[in-house]
C-alpha cells in the first residue's frame, strides 16, 4: 500500500501516524503531539477526522469537547497586528 499524507499542512504521512500509534499514542491529541499532525495553518480542520479514523475517537455520548485533538483560539490564522490590538484593549 502506497504511503499517503494525512496532515496536508505539516506533511505528516500515514506511516508517521502509524509509527506514533505503535509508539504508544492512544488518541488524536497524542498523535498530534508526536507528529505535528493538526498543527499547521488549518489547525486540524482537515486531518482531525483522518487521524481519528486511524487511532479511534475518544469517548461516546456527551463529551466536553468535539475531539481529543484540541481546538484553540484563534481558530484561524490571525495577523500579529490584529492580536496586538486585543492586547492593547
Amino acid at each position: 500500500m502506497n504511503d499517503h499524507m494525512i496532515c496536508r499542512c505539516e506533511d505528516v504521512t500515514a506511516s508517521d501516524v502509524r509509527a506514533a500509534i505503535d509508539a504508544g499514542a492512544c488518541n488524536a491529541q497524542e498523535v498530534k503531539m508526536r507528529t505535528r499532525a493538526g498543527m499547521g495553518p488549518c489547525q486540524g480542520r482537515v486531518c482531525r477526522p483522518a487521524v481519528e479514523a486511524m487511532v479511534g475517537v475518544s469517548g461516546e455520548g456527551v463529551l466536553q469537547s468535539t475531539s481529543s485533538m484540541t481546538v484553540h483560539l484563534p481558530i484561524r490564522p490571525v495577523s500579529l497586528q490584529d492580536l496586538v490590538i486585543i492586547r492593547e484593549q
Binding site: 496536508r8 499542512c9 499547521g40 495553518p41 488549518c42 480542520r45 482537515v46 490564522p77
Partner: peptide
C-alpha cells in the same frame, strides 16, 4: 483542495 477557505492549501 477544499475551495471554501477551510484547508489553507
Amino acid at each position: 483542495y477544499c475551495g471554501i477557505g477551510h484547508c489553507y492549501e
